[in-house]
Design a protein around this nucleic acid. Structure first.
Lengths: 254, 254
DNA sequence: CCTTATTCGCGTATGACATACGCGAATTAG
DNA sequence: CTAATTCGCGTATGTCATACGCGAATAAGG
């Protein structure tokens, strides 16, 4: 599944993210750069994640892309986990200066940016983002977002909860969407064909009388796209935020 | 990560889920049952997923738990992917007859049940659930849920979108939560210690002046639990649903 | 009771993977 | 020119899913 990265060395990742890139004065000059490796890794991951999960991204495939031996990468990166940390920060570029408007427009723009990120880099939503490594880009993005949301008059703590809930929602939908696109690309079986395979089983189940409600549902009940679903849920969530902002629940603000 | 299961044979999974379990009249009697295998797999996964991802669940570990050879499992299950399908349906037991009340209480009960499922089986939220195999349990759950939500007066299609959006939200938060608990269990580094490691970097970044907004935030801004976050977002989402039900957006209902 | 068709248990082999270790090559300071 | 230093990466280890096929266990038919 979602593949998460396990025993990363936090200190080393931080050094790699923020550390100086000065070369040592002696010794054989390096043939690679950390940046080149990260960029190549993102490239390969973008291609592979169209059909496979993150576990398909191997150190070998990255090395091959760069035309070097597999073990050469380990001179620059402690391991795959730390490389993932770097890929994350590499891919988060904060959009320029868009989204004028109130908190709702700002939040919506952030959500759509996040959504696009997940679709453009179909591995992104599958990386373990608990305990995020705060890289420069992630930091800048959060800073700007909070600044733009402050005028809503919500305390910072609640603001962070609003952002977190939205992030988790966006990634939840995106993950399912990406999974589906993958299944289609990998198996060559379209969505319609997939449901066609299940149909006999479903029909039989329906006629059993065990599922009276679903048996009576129209055929087009399930015909909505992930984009539609995404926008629908987002609008509902923001409507809920709006109600909360005008009439805050005293329990949550504390 | 999220590790998802790839080339599953849909037809065979369906047969395994709904098919007859009659033994053939001849030949050596089987030492195992499909049910025993699935139950063992869930047990092992529940233990392993406390600290590791789904990729740590190996066919060998399941076989060892059962006291049989690894390859014996393949007499009962085509592969790991199909076994995951079976594990999913095995773990979804529909709760008895709770949650009297309006649509809001029913939805909230469903969300909390889903939430608990993700926490009790820390691998659940990481399985590829696009193109779900409709097993008997999944089917019954959806059927009941829809039946109880019908009185809200929303058309079925919108109802399904409400359910889907909520599911994706719940799994999004749950995934982050589980990831964090894993990180803590695996590394032995508590959450506080983790942030302590990052603090010097953060302090330096703050004093750089590049992140003025975050630099001014109170220390307790990030001090909310995942449970709090979950309930907060859920309430907002339902508030949004409420607004939609009383004043539906003509675009979405179609 | 014995033969034979059938089914099962699972050992072995294959080809992926991350990565520890350490050697030889490349480079530069002195 | 030599020594210190750093790099490239081959080899080896231990993990994984799983294809293949053999020998063992069983029950029906004679």
């Amino acid at each position: 599944m979602t593949t998460e990265h396990g025993g990363r060395d936090l200190g080393r990742s931080l050094k790699l993210l923020w550390g100086d890139t000065a070369r040592p004065p002696r010794g054989r000059p390096p043939a690679l750069t950390l940046d080149r490796i990260v960029a190549a890794a993102v490239e390969v991951a973008d291609e592979l994640a169209r059909t496979e999960g993150l576990e398909a991204l191997s150190m070998r495939s990255i090395a091959t892309r760069l035309g070097v031996g597999t073990m050469s990468l380990y001179r620059y990166v402690p391991g795959k986990s730390e490389l993932l940390d770097l890929m994350l920060d590499h891919v988060i570029d904060v959009p320029g200066e868009d989204a004028e408007g109130g908190w709702r427009e700002v939040l919506a723009a952030d959500a759509r940016h996040h959504w696009r990120l997940c679709l453009d880099h179909p591995w992104y939503a599958f990386v373990d983002q608990s305990r995020p490594l705060l890289g420069p880009n992630a930091m800048r993005g959060l800073d700007r977002l909070v600044a733009r949301l402050r005028p809503a008059g919500v305390d910072d703590r609640t603001l962070l909860m609003m952002i977190s809930a939205q992030n988790d929602y966006v990634e939840g939908v995106a993950r399912r969407y990406v999974n589906e696109r993958r299944a289609e690309a990998r198996t060559g079986v379209s969505n319609e064909e997939f449901w066609a395979v299940q149909e006999p089983t479903i029909v039989k189940a329906m006629s059993s009388g065990d599922y009276p409600t679903m048996a009576g549902m129209a055929d087009n009940t399930f015909d909505f796209s992930y984009e539609q679903l995404f926008e629908f849920g987002l609008t509902r969530l923001h409507d809920g935020y709006a109600a909360f902002i005008t009439t805050p629940d005293p329990h949550q603000t504390g």
